[in-house]
Amino acid sequence: MPTYSVSCDQAEMDFEVIHGFISNSYWAQGMPKGLLRKALANSLCFAVLDSEAKQVAFGRLITDKATFAYLADVFVLESHRGLGLSKLMMTSIMEHPDLQGLRRIMLATRDAHGLYAQFGFNAVDTPETLMQIRLENPYL
C-alpha cells in the first residue's frame, strides 16, 4: 500500500490535477485556469501526495489566519477514495499552526457532512444571520 503525505507547498502541487477536478465539479464547473491560479495564490492550500509525489487530493482555506477561514475546493481523486485520505488531509488542516484559535471556520458541502462532523463542524446555529451573493453558473 502506498504511503501518503500532506504538503502546503504549492510548488509540489499539480495545478493540472487541481484544475481538472475543480473545473468539472458541481461547485465550480467551467472555472478558468487563470481564475483558479489567482484563487490558489491567495489561499492556504493542502495537497495529499502519494509515495511518488503525485497529487491525489486537495483542499484550500481562504483565511486571514487570525479570526476566520473558509474551507473550499476539497476533493480526493476517485481512484484514491476509501483510503482515509480525506481524514488525513482534514487532520493536517485542523492542526495547521496558522489555523489555531480562529473564531470561525466555515464550509459548504452537498454530500460530506459526516466527514466534517468528525472534525467539529456542525450546522450553522443562526442561519438567519448569514447572507450571500451567489451567481448561478458563473463560469459557463
Rank of each mutant, 00 (worst) to 15 (best):
P97T: 03
D125K: 14
I133L: 15
K38Q: 14
V74I: 14
T126M: 09
A72C: 14
N122K: 13
H96M: 02
L107K: 05
L36T: 07
F121S: 04
A66R: 07
F58L: 05
D98H: 12
R103P: 00
R104F: 05
H96C: 01
M89P: 08
G34D: 15
A72N: 12
F21A: 08
F121L: 04
I93Y: 07
L102W: 15
R37S: 14
T63W: 05
M131Q: 13
L36Y: 07
D98W: 03
A108R: 07
G34Q: 13
M131H: 10
A117V: 01
A72F: 06
N24W: 00
M90Q: 04
A108Y: 14
A112Q: 15
E52L: 08
Y70P: 00
K87C: 07
M31N: 03
A57V: 06
V76C: 03
Q132N: 09
L99N: 01
A72I: 05
F58W: 05
S43Y: 06
M131C: 08
M90R: 03
E128S: 10
V76Y: 00
I22T: 05
G34Y: 02
F75S: 05
Y26T: 13
S23G: 08
V76R: 01
L44E: 10
L49G: 04
S23I: 06
G34L: 07
A39L: 10
A117Y: 00
L99A: 03
L35S: 10
D125E: 15
K65N: 04
F119N: 01
L85D: 11
L88P: 09
E95D: 15
I133R: 08
D64E: 04
G101H: 11
G34E: 15
S79E: 15
L88A: 08
L35G: 09
I105H: 01
D111V: 10
A69E: 05
L130P: 00
I22L: 15
H113N: 01
V74Q: 02
G84L: 12
G120F: 11
Y70R: 09
D64H: 07
A53G: 04
R103V: 06
A53H: 11
F75R: 05
V56F: 02
Y70G: 05
L44K: 09
D73A: 04
V56W: 04
L85P: 06
S79Q: 15
D64N: 15
K65H: 12
L102Q: 12
Q29E: 11
Y26E: 14
P32Q: 11
R104M: 15
P97E: 09
G59R: 00
F21C: 10
R110N: 12
M131I: 00
S25K: 09
M31K: 13
Q55Y: 06
P32G: 07
S79G: 14
A28T: 00
D50T: 06
G120L: 09
M89V: 08
L71E: 06
C45S: 14
F21T: 10
C45W: 09
S51L: 00
E95R: 10
Q55W: 07
G84N: 11
T126S: 13
L83F: 10
V56K: 01
T109W: 07
F119Q: 02
R110C: 06
E52N: 14
D98L: 14
L115I: 07
